[in-house]
Simulated assay, not measured.
Amino acid sequence: MRLYAQTRARRCRQILADLIAVLLIAAAVRFALAVRDGIMLLAEPGRKVEDAGGSLASGLDHAGEAASNVPLVGGILKKPLQSAAEAGNGLSDAGQSMQDVVGRVADLTAFALIVTSVLFVLALWLPPRVRWIRRSALVQGLLDAPGGADLLALRALTGPVKALAAVSVPPGGLADAWRRGDAHVIDDLSRVALGQAGLRP
């Protein structure tokens, strides 16, 4: 199985198409990651809420511990401070939840952008490449098969007229020469068919 043409012009076009496909996929991935980073900026308020809630809970917890040392009313003072510390922990948890949601949205968005972009590029690039690989294998198989040169010559005769300029016989006499089985003309025409497929004899 041949991946690239043997003729220089077609091989250059194939390599250029491959490079463009790779660059487009790389650009799509970079764009998706940039979008993800942009979405992750929305998690900043959640981080601030988490930090503020944690600090508030920690401060109130320490205050409750200190208040518990006050004689007679220490237990009474400690309870509301501990309740407020638990509320601060709830605020911290809410900030963490907000960050988790934003992170999931950012990851899913980036994943969707990457998959969509890659599939789009592959849908444009892969079918022509696969068609060429299959066609070149078919043409190569014809060349190697008995009587394959005749079929390749017929293929050249039914192709573009301008490609027949490389054959020494005038275009008007090519069909007659092919029907007579002129080995030289068949060889020339099979070379034309191979060149059209991007192959060399």
Rank of each mutant, 00 (worst) to 15 (best):
E86T: 06
E86G: 04
E86L: 09
E86M: 09
A87S: 10
A87I: 08
A87M: 07
G88K: 00
G90P: 00
L91M: 15
S92H: 06
S92R: 14
D93H: 08
D93R: 12
Q96K: 15
Q96V: 11
Q96I: 10
Q99W: 00
D100W: 09
D100S: 13
D100E: 14
V101S: 10
V101P: 01
V101A: 12
V101W: 12
V102F: 04
V105I: 15
D107H: 07
D107K: 11
L108Y: 09
T109P: 08
F111M: 11
A112Q: 02
A112L: 10
I114E: 06
V115T: 09
T116W: 08
T116C: 11
S117R: 00
V118R: 02
V118S: 06
F120E: 05
A123F: 10
A123H: 07
A123E: 04
L124S: 07
L126Y: 03
L126G: 05
P128V: 01
R129V: 09
R129W: 06
R129K: 10
R131Q: 13
W132C: 04
W132H: 08
W132A: 15
R134P: 03
R135M: 08
S136G: 10
A137P: 02
L138Q: 14
V139W: 06
V139N: 02
V139I: 14
Q140H: 07
G141N: 10
G141D: 09
L143Q: 14
L143R: 11
D144K: 09
D144L: 14
P146D: 14
P146H: 08
P146L: 09
G147M: 05
G147E: 04
G147Q: 03
A149T: 12
A149D: 11
A149P: 00
D150E: 15
D150N: 08
L152D: 00
L152Q: 01
L152E: 01
L152Y: 04
L154P: 02
R155D: 12
T158G: 15
P160N: 07
V161T: 07
V161G: 00
V161N: 00
A163G: 03
A163I: 00
A163K: 05
L164S: 01
A165C: 01
A165F: 02
A166Q: 13
S168E: 15
V169T: 13
V169W: 02
P171W: 06
P171T: 03
P171D: 03
G173P: 00
G173D: 15
A175N: 06
A177Q: 07
A177P: 04
W178A: 14
W178H: 12
R179F: 08
R179Q: 08
R180W: 05
R180Y: 07
G181P: 03
A183T: 13
H184I: 13
H184T: 15
I186L: 12
D187T: 13
D187P: 02
D187R: 07
D188Y: 00
S190N: 03
S190M: 05
R191F: 01
V192C: 02
V192P: 06
V192L: 06
A193Y: 03
A193K: 00
L194N: 02
Q196I: 08
Q196Y: 10
